[in-house]
Design a binder for these strands. Structure first.
Lengths: 332, 332
DNA sequence: CTGAAAGCGCTAACAT
DNA sequence: ATGTTAGCGCTTTCAG
């Protein structure tokens, strides 16, 4: 067995209670005694057992992160934001990948509760009813990250997807583009994409451009879908001079299709992506895209969770982080 | 307080010991009693408190991952590999970012020990002496992931960097290239790069090509350094027809420089990268690169750690995962 | 086959 | 100012 508080007590010739007091900075202990204890701690190289402490205090200083998939380029930046602030406050993070699978989400929440995490940062397409129920049943302190929830009762931090994509579309329009292809998730999807589609819609409306079904491609986000949809539209003879995509992968796939069809970007067609993943600055031409401030999403979410854990007042339970349109080479 | 083993015991009219037995599958309990217990568990929605169990058993079924930076594209895939196998065996992972900062590495190791992780997956440029000492002092079960250690005593999983880069270089040579630029970390770096440089050296040697200092650029990995070094060589009038880079970012920067100087890839110059990050398949032209099997690195590392935790025999304490040369458009 | 009880390492109420 | 002790929720020996 490793060295415990008892050993320190013996070494310093005090009770374990006193050791505990000085370790927890409870300012009642005599200077001399404190010194003796600290010396004993030093001498023995003692480190408290946090598990034992947690059992007593019912707090682990560990939080859970439940995201779809860390190997998807959307998430690492967010997780880094979370971990940076958690480490400032002496918290650690248990990372879980759900693949947006409902069963996995549910199971992980139970497991995290068993491990007594102090709170949960949850991210998925949407917050399922079942998940919500479990969260409430387990009394799990949770903040939602960029996750659509019917029930706005759970604290959350998101970006303003409607306005973000409207800005992207407006960029295209202000550059004189009128026939703007939309490539993205279905508008009825239970996730951010629905809002992004709405932004597209509003952008057109506000500029008195009629929306055309011919210019709308609903599909799952992937390089290939970006490519295929553009090829299809070209083959169908549908003309367009701008493309708005709800993620960078789609945009890159789209540009690849344009290139293969000898359509110059940005001269013949401008393209705007979404997410500002590393890809977008590395791709040629460099992609104009919307930066959702992923790092902030994570760090602000973590700060909010911390407040909730500590029963502090949270001014804004529906925090919206700012986004930025990053203009690069795929637009003029 | 949430519902505990006592409540289940009361509900099932047995002792807590019996509840514990059925929960842990200790096959001595009467069928009927088992059934009663299970029903009580079900009825109350009981879930054991793992923290309490851990305090008793001295095992947490949690392991630590200490990597430089999850937001660097090298690591997410590895972490996913780790988490996938850890979840199979009912383990969870605490993720820590060290930024390769020695103090952070040391501090995190202490923290992870305090949280009683069952083991550690460690990844850095190299294993510092101090870190090694702490690991041993704390008796921390550790496996190193692609981390150079003078002391080969710690179990580790790596890739064969020498042969991997030799294959990359050989690809260039077999395509008729003779003047091959090397862009990468210094050969004396305490990390994988030293081996990658060695592979470059050996590749040339084995093909009777004299190595030239003019063709060697030592630098930190970044898009910009890839770009700048190529520009510099061009300005210096040094001629080359192939480039081998120790990471994809360097290679992409290099290709951008070639493009800006009207040098066609792959016709005038072929380029090979390293790591097969997502970038490499998205960039135009798609990058020929070496795939280090990141996912396997993680999953195999985790499996090895599990064996060590369970005191099982590990056949090979210096496991080498296989790599693959992925041929794409930046070579012929 | 089952129960009583000790104890994992710590904190905190209570006592002195 | 310091010590004694109960107890967090669980596992595991020891009795029976």
């Amino acid at each position: 067995m490793s060295i415990s508080i008892k050993d320190v007590a013996k070494e310093a010739k005090v009770s374990i209670a006193t050791v505990s007091r000085v370790l927890n900075g409870i300012e009642v202990v005599n200077e001399d005694t404190q010194k003796r204890v600290r010396e004993a701690v030093e001498k023995l190289g003692y480190r408290p057992n946090i598990i034992a402490r947690s059992l007593k205090t019912q707090r682990t200083r560990t939080i859970g992160i439940l995201i779809p998939d860390i190997s998807n380029s959307l998430y690492p930046e967010i997780v880094r934001g979370i971990e940076d602030v958690s480490s400032i406050y002496n918290y650690n993070i248990i990372l879980c990948n759900s693949d947006m699978n409902l069963d996995k989400e549910k199971e992980y929440i139970y497991i995290l509760k068993e491990k007594m995490v102090d709170g949960l940062l949850f991210m998925s397409n949407s917050l399922d009813e079942d998940v919500l129920e479990i969260l409430q049943k387990l009394n799990m302190k949770t903040v939602l990250l960029e996750t659509t929830a019917e029930n706005k009762t759970i604290p959350n931090v998101t970006i303003d997807n409607v306005n973000a994509s409207k800005e992207g579309v407006n960029k295209l329009i202000s550059n004189g583009r009128r026939n703007i292809l939309y490539i993205g998730d279905h508008k009825h999807a239970l996730n951010a994409s629905a809002y992004r589609f709405k932004g597209y819609e509003e952008g057109l409306n506000e500029n008195n451009i009629k929306m055309s079904d011919d210019l709308i491609c609903f599909c799952k986000p992937s390089l290939n879908n970006g490519y295929e949809n553009v090829v299809k539209k070209i083959q169908e003879g549908i003309s367009f001079d701008g493309i708005f995509c709800t993620c960078d992968e789609l945009a890159i796939g789209a540009i690849n299709a344009l290139r293969d069809n000898n359509i110059n970007v940005p001269n013949d067609c401008e393209v705007v992506g979404f997410n500002n993943t590393l890809l977008s600055s590395v791709f040629y031409p460099k992609l104009t895209t919307i930066d959702p401030s992923s790092y902030d999403l994570g760090s602000i979410g973590m700060r909010m969770l911390l407040k909730i854990i500590n029963n502090e007042n949270v001014e804004n339970l529906n925090y919206v982080v700012s986004h930025t349109l990053i203009e690069r080479e795929s637009t003029r």
